[in-house]
């Protein structure tokens, strides 16, 4: 019958009139994010970072700048470089997460937020002091150990460096299978030993 298709279409829209709107009223409500969300609030554990700059090397845009001080730590002892500068230029960051994937010591993690708007471009650069001072709410992206521990950057508690375990990924053959216990006897980034538990 001619017109039947039109009537059926009208029926579909009428049925959808009765449904709830699916839009989100953004500033008041937000889409619930999965813990794996790759967001802007990078979490960095200075105690774990050796200053190897793998993250900077694997960044497709080269926006991570790391300056280390070889004298700060005791690298012969399995220690770390002292990280003087750790700038992440968020203005160009696309949150692909390759830096986090590249980190051999699980020191760098993605964060959760996405509202990075500022009035000046310079404010978008995350520096080492901000990374140190930040509350540690790592995203569980590429961190199965955090996922197993049911960490949630949005609602859960902050995760301290000791709690953020390690995952020996088989597809990173060169990565030493270190456990947090071994890590304890290693020099931290500022050069002091931290063997206390």
């Amino acid at each position: 019958m001619y017109g039947a298709g039109i009537l059926r279409g009208l029926g579909v829209t009428l049925r959808n009139l009765a449904r709830r709107p699916f839009t989100i009223q953004y500033p008041e409500e937000r889409v619930p994010q999965h813990p794996r969300f790759r967001g802007q609030e990078f979490t960095w554990y200075e105690q774990r970072c050796t200053g190897c700059a793998s993250c900077a090397k694997y960044c497709p845009l080269g926006i991570i700048r790391i300056v280390t001080d070889p004298d700060g730590g005791n690298e012969q002892d399995g220690g770390s470089y002292k990280v003087d500068v750790f700038d992440i230029d968020q203005a160009r960051c696309m949150y692909c997460g390759l830096c986090v994937e590249a980190c051999p010591y699980d020191a760098l993690h993605m964060g959760s937020g996405f509202e990075a708007a500022t009035l000046r471009r310079e404010d978008l650069v995350i520096n080492v002091d901000m990374l140190k001072a930040r509350e540690k709410r790592p995203s569980t992206w590429f961190r199965p150990q955090l996922e197993r521990a049911k960490a949630d950057p949005h609602h859960g508690d902050p995760v301290e460096w000791r709690e953020a375990g390690r995952e020996p990924f088989p597809w990173h053959p060169k990565r030493p299978a270190q456990t947090p216990e071994e890590m304890d006897h290693r020099a931290s980034a500022d050069g002091s030993y931290r063997s206390e538990r």
């Binding site: 794996r36 790759r38 997460g97």
Partner: peptide
């Protein structure tokens, strides 16, 4: 987003498989 933490720019697949389970 559950799979790879992003909604549009996914970068989920990796050479030799996918990023994570």
């Amino acid at each position: 987003e559950m799979l790879c933490g992003a909604r549009i720019t996914l970068s989920y697949m990796r050479i030799g498989g996918v990023l994570q389970d």
